[in-house]
Nucleic acid binder design. Structure first.
Length: 482
RNA sequence: CGGGGCGUAGCGCAGCCAGGAAGCGCACUUGAAUGGGGUUCAAGUGGUCGCCGGUUCAAAUCCGGCCGCCCCGACCA
């Protein structure tokens, strides 16, 4: 078996691509920048969807579907929006063999077409708030693409809400940011920082953009979900108005928030190691895999019977389990194969185990013998496995949190030190910041680092900006970013 | 869109400079033995050499054009 993963230390991008291809998450499509999401990768996405969708419903949102095609004129109604998205639009100019009167944009996001609908649906304050989400595909003509992280077409959800007051809309924006953070931390085991985007990095058309930022295994930041306070920008562009209690016509305040298949890339780069993928149990398509081991034909039968009993026991307990009864590959091969695919827990059953009515359990997050428990009684193994899955879930979050802590640098006093730390250590540089957008641009040009966010929770007191020397309360996190 | 690299079997590559029978490793198929950390042996299957054109008796190889992919930059979830 020649399947090998390029070690992270040799080439981090190749390591990433190797995992995506070899774990069969996705393949390149015949069209540039597009990907085929394979069943294993798609099941992971389905589990992400389930975790988010449940949270959306719990917070009062409902799902709907809006069209893929958006009239070009819609995109042009909001000045910032059109400026931001024009370069990456895919446009349909012909239909049914004829040139269209008005070109249709393949949705790069749906604020405009949803705004159009909201303008018709909303009449009175009694219609508010309007809380709708949609799951769909998106097309943005990106110059440079990478599987899951940035593809020409991707899958996501986009929530779009309309509110009577600014306060309510801001509250919604932050509530959904919190929902994303809760999902990332508890389901994906990815510690994230909730923060505000700099004006330079915010969504085209938003008043303020908020983000959950995660640290990848190479120290780079990944914006893993965003929530936008849109003010009245789109309400004004699309005439989304309501009559308030005093019978006065008011513009609505709107929000939008999205999380995409990029999250899959985040999971890979947060947890994976040189053996391959490591999936958090809550989201893993297969939570436990059973590898039977035998020598002789007689052993084969009893081992497979025992393995099947364990499989049934786990399945009944609600564990997503697979019995790998392939005969053409050796147990050793299967160990490596499932490790590469990131399955959190492996159950090994051989003749010796059957003899003592026991199994061997191995956890993916601890390689080799350290992660193995021998002689686990087969009766009641389901409870043990479930507890182990919880343990692995917690351990992944803890490890990622410690990694982020170890690679977050504070107390940087000046620009020289900033550059030195960035080059030598990388990771997040958490600094006092009072610079202008132009300063931000200059730093990006000189160091490639950007402001990944202004974190919302700040323990630091006032301090001196490392760049301008000004006294400030404001904290920024700089880093290289995807 | 600029810089670099690469297109030969499913994957990774050699062959090209110096034109003359399309090869190697892995994967795949079949059989046998094996099976507690990437098993071994044997026999097989599989190719419009990225595409189009040119030179030549003869092109994977030389010449011209085009296309695609990967990496690095400017732009972005």
């Amino acid at each position: 078996m020649a399947k090998r993963i390029t070690p992270r230390s040799v080439d981090y991008s190749r390591w990433y691509t190797d995992i995506v291809r070899q774990a069969e998450l996705a393949d390149y499509a015949p069209v540039r920048g597009c990907m085929i999401i394979r069943p294993y990768g798609y099941t992971l996405w389905e589990n992400i969807k389930a975790g988010l969708d449940r949270r959306f419903k719990e917070t009062g949102h409902v799902n709907a579907y809006f069209p893929l095609f958006i009239p070009m004129s819609f995109i042009q109604k909001e000045a910032q929006h059109v400026a931001g998205f024009s370069p990456e639009l895919a446009v349909v100019t012909h239909g049914g063999g004829k040139k269209l009167e008005e070109p249709l944009v393949v949705r790069p996001t749906s604020e405009t077409i949803i705004g159009h609908a909201y303008a018709q649906w909303i009449r009175s304050y009694r219609d508010l708030p309007l809380l709708i989400n949609q799951w769909c595909n998106i097309v943005r003509w990106e110059k440079r693409t990478r599987l899951f992280l940035r593809t020409t077409e991707f899958l996501w959800q986009e929530g779009h809400t309309a509110h009577a007051t600014e306060e309510e809309a801001v509250e919604e924006t932050l509530r959904m940011l919190g929902v994303y953070a809760d999902f990332a931390i508890n389901d994906a085991a990815i510690p994230v920082i909730q923060g505000k985007k700099s004006q330079r990095e915010k969504f085209a058309g938003a008043v303020d953009s908020y983000t959950i930022e995660a640290m990848m295994g190479n120290g780079w930041a990944l914006q893993s979900g965003t929530s936008h306070f849109l003010g009245q920008n789109f309400a004004k562009a699309f005439d989304i108005k309501y009559l308030d209690r005093n019978n006065e016509l008011q513009h609505c305040w709107t929000t939008s928030w999205g999380l995409s298949t990029r999250m899959v890339g985040g999971i890979i780069m947060t947890h994976g190691d040189d053996q391959g993928l490591i999936l958090p149990p809550v989201l893993a398509p297969i939570q436990a895999v059973i590898v039977p081991i035998w020598r002789k034909e007689k052993e084969r039968t009893v081992v497979l019977e025992a393995a099947e009993r364990v499989r049934a026991q786990l399945a009944d307990a609600g564990v997503r389990v697979k019995l790998d009864d392939r005969e053409e590959v050796s147990p050793g091969f299967k160990f490596n194969d499932w490790e590469m695919r990131g399955v959190p827990v492996r159950v090994e059953i051989g003749p010796r185990d059957v003899a003592q009515n026991a199994v061997v359990l191995a956890r993916r997050d601890r390689p080799g013998k350290q992660g193995k428990a021998f002689g686990v009684p087969a009766d009641g193994v389901a409870e043990v496995v479930k507890a182990l899955l919880d343990e692995v879930q917690a351990a992944l979050l803890q490890r990622a949190t410690e990694f982020r802590g170890a690679n977050t640098h504070t107390g940087i006093r000046d620009y020289e030190e900033f550059k030195e730390v960035l080059v030598e250590k990388g990771g997040f540089l958490r600094v006092h910041w009072a610079g202008s957008p132009e300063d931000e641009d200059r730093i990006k040009e000189e160091t490639k680092a950007t402001i990944s966010c202004y974190p919302l929770d700040i323990e630091e007191g006032p301090g001196r900006c490392f760049y301008t020397g000004q006294e400030t309360d404001n904290i920024a996190i700089f880093s290289r970013a995807y």
